[in-house]
Amino acid sequence: MLALLLRDLRLATRAGGGFGLSLAFFLIVTVLVPFGVGPEGGTLARIAPGILWVGALLSCLLSLDRIFALDREDGSLDLLATAPIPLEGVVAVKAAAHWLTTGLPLTLAAPVLGVLLNLPEAAFSWLTLSLMLGTPALSMIGSFGAALTVGLKRGGLLLSLLVLPLYIPTLIFGAEAAKRGAEGLAAGTPLLMLAGITLGAVAILPFAAAAAIRVNLR
């Protein structure tokens, strides 16, 4: 299991591994928004938590199809399915590797990019906390979607359509928590809901994704 995690992290950071792709996309979105919306500080501050959350979600979506498709193409997935580690474990480890190379860098970059959007000072910690709690759910739900579409050639479009509706609750509670934090309101409830979504996804979806992969390998 640890070997698989280390391999995925190593692959992501080597040339062509797609490590920087999500981060670069996130940067582009947050840099472009002030140009589109206008430099008026009050407007930007009001929409900043939502923009940062939407940007993080779309960046995450961008790298999902790599999770299983590459392993399927080179035959590794067949070999992992016959290996002595359970397929549920493979899914969980690959989702964890995706989070470490996508969700975690996005979480760490968000406060820095928040400066560009005139994010209120009070919101920084809440934004980081909500992303920290919410991005694991994005990786896990995304892995499930990737497992469903792993047999399809160029299944990226279907993957996005399948995963986007499942991402909406995470987005609502995540952005709400950051927004309430920015306005100085109590953000405990949306954060708890967010943590609930993440824990539920981590508990259930490895099994669903492993079942989907078994069907797709036939």
């Binding site: 640890l2 070997a3 698989l4 391999r7 190593r10 692959l11 080597r14 040339a15 062509g16 591994g17 193409e73 080179d74 035959g75 590794s76 067949d78 070999l79 992992l80 016959t82 290996a83 002595p84 580690i85």
Partner: peptide
Amino acid sequence: EGAAYAGHADGLKATLTVAENLAFWARIYG
């Protein structure tokens, strides 16, 4: 856990070295 399968595709990662590819599968099989 009696069988090892080798299909048409070799399950190699292009950016890993020969030794790294082999070490990965060795560790998967303990």
